[in-house]
Design a protein around this nucleic acid. Structure first.
Lengths: 262, 262
DNA sequence: ATCACAAGTTCCATTAGTTGAAACTTAGTT
DNA sequence: AACTAAGTTTCAACTAATGGAACTTGTGAT
């Protein structure tokens, strides 16, 4: 359990998360208002994190934002602990072949993290999507990944979903989501039926180990104006080739199998 | 001075940096061998960081790697504290116009952090992506950024350079580098004359505030087989337009001016 | 200018968490 | 089975974190 119970370090990282959650520079007083820590304690955490380059302080505006050291560290993570370097060549080819946007995602604490992407038309943009998080219950990649979770982890993951209704096809109950997960396991692939954004559809396949654990997932995204679910479904064989190739490379590179979450 | 002197949090982050520095998953014993911390202490740090998702533990191999939480946090940093979102449109256009690879970089503790890039249609095969760090003394973007540092910060930054000789044009002394920095300030732009990689050249311009502080830098990279320094120099006006447009947008977005480092 | 209030910063006695040598357990080798 | 190295736990000594309160600075109103 990743509770922020471990000591001073856990508390400091909790503050770091809080700053990151605003998505914009924040004043100390804003943090204080939303924090469980008393003023002096919070102040010291923010000081320490700033000293360490984990936060950046803007003296002119008196605001804090996540610091550049994170970008440096994340690069290391992305390089050594994500599927991106292994998958790069494969998704290049997939994207070129199908002419649509391709996403590579992994699961982290019941959340989807987009790890890489290829745009069909536009040039590649690294972190514009890399590092972005999304909900597991209403994205193609999210659903295919949780579908292959062991029951204990799945229950845990489902418990953490918010089931916010983004569109009128969004799953709003555990039951309807579980039903779809069963289908996904049967088919080996899943869709996003405009569940997150109207007009945006995708097909997603898991990247599976020999023991049927999902290391990650890839998806091909399109719009309802360009194609439909049947159109995406026709790409299954091509995408499966890529997913299997990535899985094979990952196993020979001894890519770490994600540890249990709870 | 970002010495890891601040308490437990500083020490834990030092361990995190150490793990990241290997660029591959590492065993506990490897860390212990290179660490100033005693076994039990190091062990607890690694445990805490793993609990927190800052490190990922692979139970099969008994190795640690930087965790996915960093990727999530870095995305927030990239979005709110880097120039990338502001510059995105501008460097899209620049890259399309000049047909070469464009880099956007910022300075962090005397190191260059590449924050975004655009590949030319025919991409130069180079190792560089967002979050990647590079030396300041032998890259175009690094030199133009430190050229505009106040003397106190510049002295500090120069003291941190390793002056490793990558090629035979690499600067190896503070003196020769300082001489070039004077030229850069006079011209408003600088080059990478195959100082980092043979065959790779670039022209770089700083992104300056009204008070002549460098918020970041952009560069256009090419190869000696495709063009030469004069060819790159002919792009100065075009690149300057982009740099100034980014600076203008940054000031109206109230982009934070980097704080003094030491 | 002067005051009032909020935001930000420092102090320091108390308390809680960190420290690390040593003992222990597990995994791998001869 | 005996040995060795890697990984894990323990616990008393100790050091660093805690947070209420006092203080300073910044902002805006009169």
């Amino acid at each position: 359990m990743a509770a922020s119970g471990d000591g001073t370090v856990g508390k400091a990282l909790e503050v770091l998360d809080q700053v990151a959650s605003y998505g914009r520079p924040v004043r100390f007083s804003e943090l204080q208002g939303a924090s469980r820590f008393p003023k002096a304690t919070l102040y010291r955490f923010v000081q320490t994190l700033t000293n360490q380059g984990m936060l950046a302080f803007d003296p002119d505006r008196g605001t804090y934002a996540p610091g550049m050291r994170l970008v440096r560290l994340a690069h290391a993570s992305w390089q050594t602990a994500s599927l991106a370097p292994i998958a790069a060549g494969h998704i290049d080819r997939l994207s070129a072949d199908v002419g649509e946007t391709v996403h590579l995602a992994q699961l982290d604490h019941a959340q989807v993290i987009y790890v890489d992407k290829r745009n069909a038309a536009d040039p590649v943009r690294m972190y514009s999507q890399s590092g972005k998080v999304g909900p597991a219950y209403c994205t193609g990649v999210g659903k295919v990944m949780i579908a292959y979770l062991p029951e204990a982890d799945l229950a845990d993951a489902l418990g953490q979903q918010s089931f916010h209704r983004f569109t009128d096809t969004t799953h709003t109950t555990v039951e309807s989501l579980r039903a779809e997960l069963t289908d996904i396991r049967a088919n080996g692939y899943g869709f996003d039926r405009e569940e997150h954004e109207p007009g945006i559809i995708c097909i997603a396949l898991p990247i599976l180990t020999e023991t049927n654990r999902a290391l990650g997932a890839i998806s091909v995204t399109s719009t309802t104006t360009r194609t439909n679910l049947a159109g995406l479904e026709s790409l299954v064989q091509r995408i499966r080739t890529t997913a299997e190739a990535i899985a094979k490379d990952a196993s020979s590179w001894h890519f770490p199998i994600p540890a249990r979450s709870s």
